[in-house]
Structures are given as C-alpha cells and as structure tokens.
Amino acid sequence: MIDVSTTPATNKSGPAAGRRRTYRPNAQYIPVLATLTLLIVMYTLGAVNYENFTHPSVILNLFTDNAFLMVVAVGMTFVILTGGIDLSVGAVIALTSTVAATLLQAGWPAGVVIPTVLLVGGVLGLGMGAVIHFFKVEPFIATLAGMFLARGVALLIDQNSIPITNGFWTGLAEARIVFEPGVYISAMALVALAVVAVAAVVLAWSRFGRNVYAIGGNADSALLMGLPVGRTRIGVYTLSGFCAALGGLIYSITTTSGYAGHGTGTELDAIAAVVIGGVLLTGGSGYVLGTVLGVLVLGMINTIVNFQSLNSWWARMAIGVLLFAFIVLQRLVTRRAK
C-alpha cells in the first residue's frame, strides 16, 4: 500500500478500489440505510394489511407520540457513542415531571420552572459523569444509582400523580400545526426535531462531537492523542441528563401531569432505539439520524400492534417478535452489505 515500487503499482489504496464502478455506500452508513429500508418495508406491510394505515396522521402521530423518547434517545446516542450507557433517563423523566408539577402547583411561573427543571437534569448528569470519569465507576452502575436516586427523590416529593393546570403547559399541550382536520404535528414533535437537528450538527461538525466518536473508538488512545477525554465524557452525561429533563418536560406537557411512575422502562426504549438505529453499544460508530429511525421503528411496532388490537400479553409477544424480526433482518442486511 505504500508506494515504494519503481513502477507505479495499480490499486494502491485498497478501500477505494472499485468504488467508481458500482455504487457502494460507505460501510458506516449501512446500518442506517438498512434501518430505513426495513422501516419502509414495515410501513408497506402495515399499509397492505390494515385499513386507514396510510392516513397521514399515522406517520405524524408517530412523531407526536414519541417526541419525548426522541429527545431522550438523542442524549442517549451521545452517551452510547462514547461507549457508555445512561440508565437514569427514565427516572429523570419521573423526577422532572414531578418537580415541574409540584412547582407549578406551588404557583411558580412557567418561565422559572422550565430552566429549573432542565438544570436539575443537567446537574444530575454532571454528577454521574464526574463519578464515572474521576472515580472510574462503571457507567452502568453509576447511572443505575442515579436512577434509584432520581426516582427515589420523585417518590419522596409525591407518591401520587399531580395534575398540571398551568395555562402555559396546557397551551403547549394543545399547540400544533394543523394541515387538515385530524392531520397535525404537535409543537413538542417540532421541539424534538429541533433537538435532533442540533445534535446532528454538533456530532458531525464540532470538535466536541468528533471527540465523542474518538473516545468511543478507543478511550486510551484518545487520551494519548491529547484529547480532552474527561471534559467530553462528563459533557455527554450532562447532555444526556439535560435531554432526559427536556424529555420529562415534554412528557409532563403531553400528559399534563407529573408522576413518580412516569417514564418507567424509557431507558430501555431509548437504548433499543439507539441500537436499532445502528449505533454500536461499544461506541464510536453511528448517527443521530439512525436513532431517529430507531425511535420510529419502535413507534411503528406499537402502531401495528394497536391496529391489530391485541390484548396486553399478545401485544408484548408481538412487540418482541417484531423487534426480533427487525433486528435479525437488519443484522443480515448489514452483514451481506459488508
């Protein structure tokens, strides 16, 4: 591969060879493309099998219903890209919705509550990140403790669901862009999409974003290369905490309530979405766009299960089976393409 021969040897740069003749997508995009393709296949199957499946509201509701998950999963993407994991996000949703509801009930203005709640999430993330980085505690355990803590504090504040009557909140819950009656996109979905856009830009175009990938690739090397490993690592957990808090706000807005039981299992949904979107759990490879597709896949599975109107245990089986089918297909597609 190194040019030392006297005659110019052919084909020196192996990976680029053969690129001109046939279109070969960059190997790193393959998982995302596979997810996209399968998502389309799934939609088509739904459209063929169920009446009204092709109604535009089905797709738009996917975004509206999963806005909070999308925001949370974006934060999770950063964490997983560094090779870490954040189990606290579901509990942070519980905590932030409870805190928000309690403060609003106490008569705090929305303009103060929102930054306060976001700060709570960010600080919790910061704390977990610091423990992970400085004391070398495993992310799984540090964030598990964070999960206990967040949900525990939420329970301490209030064990019951707290309704939110604040005008700003109920207003946001109703805010939407209506295309035609019954076909609309909610403000919260737009917030989620904005978060996605910002995240994509940060990951692709900023030094912080690239450092995230480097740490996921090889943290020891990243350190030896003189990258700010500590700052970046703490940064992603802070970001994830912030995103979870934002997700919690969105959740409290769409449900107009705060409850310590909110967001149970959201961490697993978020992890699943990230991984389905083609991000490697070992870190260093994947895209935010993939995560968005992952969230849509989970949403689509739920939609199909709803259309089939199954009882709860069959629904669980169906979700499992669809998840399985999807992951295996994705795996096979990716393997073949590589």
């Binding site: 175009w205 900023s206 990938y213 090889n218 290369m225 700010p228």
Partner: peptide
C-alpha cells in the same frame, strides 16, 4: 495509539481540526 474507527484524516487532525465559525 489512534482511533481505528475514525478516518485517516480525522486521526491526523482530531483535537486541532481547522474550523470556521466553530464548524
């Protein structure tokens, strides 16, 4: 000691990439 998942160019420049307006 490099990051094998990143491109060759990135491995050379990561941490000191040329930027304009932070991009």
């Amino acid at each position: 000691n490099l990051c094998a998942n990143l491109s060759v160019a990135e491995n050379i420049f990561i941490g000191r990439q040329p930027r304009r307006f932070g991009r």
